[in-house]
Write a protein that binds this DNA or RNA. Structure first.
Lengths: 220, 220
DNA sequence: TTGAAAGTTTAGGTTAGCCTAAATTCTGCC
DNA sequence: GGCAGAATTTAGGCTAACCTAAACTTTCAA
């Protein structure tokens, strides 16, 4: 069993690795994510390397080993199952579940995890559309495209909203932009201008940045 | 917010205080409960005293202050609400909920606590019959008598089972001895012998020790 | 190509929580 | 009342996780 903070480092590396071009995570990026000094990250990376959970080359960055990735996926599974449970069963608003799960994930036993998984009907994704890793440590994400990449004139379904900020989520939820919802891309204004969409009978404009965090289905 | 371990110290003092004659908790008793050396307890007691959460006189023992008691009751409320939720809603066996709640209690936010409390219908007791402190930090336990003290020939209802050991709980649960159940005290054998009882159509013998941990209603 | 800025690591230090061993205080029995 | 043994505290040390400041690499723009 890893300590709470080691778990946070491993999870952080996994997530940042997914966002990075090279698959390498910079010390500073991790430091920022964990609200910790860069020096602390360096020494923790050395420890994680000792434990064979990361490959780490000084000044170059870090990347999870297979073992590290397995652990990251277990933690992510806890996190996402909890998010889904809190939203679906407990009835907590979708913008709040992330922060709650962030703490509970470290306290969830394997037994309780298994019960929740079954109660939820062996789900594949959490309320934000993030895929839930299987208990054998495999992760399969449905194909999707950032809304920003989709051409105007098509209709797609929202698969995933990749943002944890409660304010952003409340805003999007208010517009009805949550996974499972269908929307039509009306127009993409030039010079990185907003994307115009229709959801049900409502039309909305969405800044480019946001439209890069909303992922929609690929055409059938 | 207290650290996880400080919370455990405060809760431990509260519980042991309840079991003690004098209302004072000995260093060694706390050390045993927390699986920690006596020396560690001494230094933590000094810290808790600094924080005005305990009254502590070296060599004499410790007792919670009002402030300390308030915190203990908050933690106990978390613990017992979680036990009840896990048993009632999640469907976890009653002998397992204690250990699960032991960890989760430190990770439960006030928001989630409030939601669970409402979902459970503002409950007054957990699956073991332990009373759930109110959110204003008051605790009212229904009147009850240890089974060992009840005279033969009467019928009573089980109010509370004061034991955390999963093996014991599984055994008692197997006999149907859980809070809410009615039983008849048939006979108390001499020399601290067993207590004979009837539960429904079944008759059982219970050792004296166990019969001191089962609390039943006082006569109406 | 080089040097300043940005990024990273090293050095040295802090705090929380734990430990063992030694010193102290308390308790109960003769 | 005194003393042995039990209980407790003190002394000294350890590890995990953090920090700041200084030293070192890397990067990239002139």
């Amino acid at each position: 069993m890893l300590s709470r903070q080691l778990e946070d480092y491993v999870k952080g590396i996994f997530v940042l690795q997914g966002e990075s071009e090279t698959g390498l995570v910079a010390t500073s990026a991790l430091a920022k994510r964990l609200s910790v000094s860069a020096a602390s990250v360096t020494s923790m990376l050395k420890k994680l390397k000792q434990m064979k959970l990361v490959q780490y080359t000084p000044y170059k960055g870090a990347r999870l080993t297979q073992g590290g990735e397995k652990i990251a996926l277990e933690i992510l599974r806890h996190h996402r199952l909890l998010e889904l449970y809190l939203a679906e069963v407990v009835g907590m608003p979708w913008d709040q579940v992330h922060n709650e799960a962030e703490i509970l994930e470290h306290a969830l036993s394997e037994e309780l995890e298994a019960i929740l998984f079954e109660k939820l009907g062996r789900p594949k994704a959490d309320p934000h559309g993030d895929p839930i890793p299987a208990d054998d440590g495999t992760l399969e994400a449905p194909a999707s495209t950032a809304l920003a990449e989709v051409e105007a004139g098509t209709t797609r379904m929202i698969i995933r909203v990749r943002n944890d900020d409660p304010e952003v989520l409340r805003y999007l939820g208010g517009l009805g932009l949550i996974p499972g919802v269908k929307l039509e891309i009306l127009e993409k204004l030039p010079f990185n201008g907003p994307v115009k969409i229709r959801v049900g009978d409502d039309e909305h404009s969405l800044g480019r940045e946001l439209s890069q965090e909303i992922f929609v289905s690929t055409p059938a």
